[in-house]
Design a protein around this nucleic acid. Structure first.
Lengths: 235, 235
DNA sequence: TCGACATTTCGATACGAGTCGAAGCATGCA
DNA sequence: TGCATGCTTCGACTCGTATCGAAATGTCGA
């Protein structure tokens, strides 16, 4: 049993470096990213990133696939993502709460895209409204199930649910929101829904950052369809 | 959002030191231990331990209670233990599997208390039997739901379910077992059930460690009530 | 009040690890 | 074949921090 602490600490050690943590978090949605992109995500040079990636690989937290001259890294398993989520959720404390965020920070907290789906306060509020209306229901394995009435509602909104193909994680996933510490809608349904909200003019994505803006038309639609207004999102 | 990786990594950093990890693991059963004992558990001097404990305290992973000239440290919450278990379960690899465990290690693997509920092979086997008999059912949010027949069965066993008050995580939680990598029963119901099994003489807790022993009467009861015998647990 | 014990603070040391520049390997394209 | 691109290896530098000895603080018992 004395070997256990070493094991835990060495695993934690891999996550303990800010650059490595940034890379792992960037991979949290399960996609595979090339080394260069991970270097960018962690704000380090390619050499440094390479060294980190080698360690994560040796530690069994990542796997790699070589394709042409790119090397695509991905998390070794969903348990890795799960552990990261637990670490992230571990500190509820004052530290972050107290300092006021920058303007850009507030925008990001309010609404942003998390890879290709909606996150932030708005993402959480929308997801919650969808659940309250029983359009989706949380299920095991961090999935959301689409109910019949949800199927219909998304159809009315202009989303062809039947055309979506579920991944091995299902049609809709629960994704932990870093800033809100609650789940928001991800997976193919989440991605397609985000696309829809952008193309029908409810949301506008920023070109330079991950921030997302709600248009006047968007607020009207959110209020009518999901009972969400500006005041109910922010507190 | 760039602050998130820092947060994760700084939390992981606290666990990344072997001495600190050893202390945290020693506290995993929820007990409060004095600084000296933690120093011993981590095989470092008192000064070194003190420095580590101060860091863990500042990081919010521990809380402390001063009592006389002793200072008793304990985990800040069960989420800390949960995170540690996830870290421990992260590496499926060869390392541990191959080496035979010590006698003490085998005992711990077989049955131990995790916080205040039953863990190890026995804990997993019992939890599984409870599910097969539909006394409890896994639900979202890592919970177990107590079925009507389960309510009745626990009552017959001598556990007053109505007297339990659910926490914000519900009445019964799924807790990941780090040696078995499967869930066992936790939460108020798990705690009370463990207490019951000790008071009715089925189990006997060790004074010096977290290991738990099954009495002959316990084996008879487990076989009769849940179909669990010695052979069905160990493989 | 004094001595024993538990714990923390201070200071010095030494080891480990992250970082980046420069160079070395592959792969793909013309 | 030559060149650009993506990634890794090598070497050197620097900084952080884990560690422990010595001493201070605080608490209990006589």
């Amino acid at each position: 049993m004395n070997t256990l602490p070493n094991h835990v600490s060495s695993t934690a050690f891999l996550i303990a470096d800010p650059a490595r943590a940034a890379m792992l978090i960037a991979l949290c949605d399960g996609r595979a990213l090339p080394a260069g992109e991970l270097a960018y995500a962690a704000s380090v040079t390619a050499q440094t990133a390479s060294s980190h990636l080698a360690k994560l690989l040796a530690g069994g937290l990542l796997t790699v696939e070589t394709e042409g001259r790119h090397r695509y890294y991905r998390l070794a398993g969903s348990d890795v993502a799960l552990t990261l989520e637990h670490l992230a959720a571990l500190r509820p404390s004052e530290a972050v709460r107290r300092k006021p965020l920058s303007h850009e920070g507030q925008n990001l907290r309010f609404a942003r895209c998390c890879y290709d789906h909606l996150a932030g306060q708005l993402g959480v509020a929308v997801t919650q409204a969808l659940q309250e209306r029983q359009y989706i229901a949380p299920a095991a394995e961090k999935q959301f199930l689409l109910t019949p009435s949800g199927h219909e509602w998304f159809g009315v909104m202009g989303l062809d649910v039947a055309a979506l193909k579920p991944t091995r994680c299902g049609l809709a996933r629960q994704c932990l929101d870093w800033t809100e510490r609650r789940h928001h809608l991800a997976g193919p349904l989440g991605v397609q829904f985000m696309t829809l909200l952008c193309s029908n003019g409810w949301l506008r994505r920023s070109k330079s950052s991950r921030a997302v803006q709600v248009t006047p038309k968007g607020w009207a639609g959110l209020k009518e369809q999901l009972g969400i207004d500006q005041n109910s999102v922010i507190p």
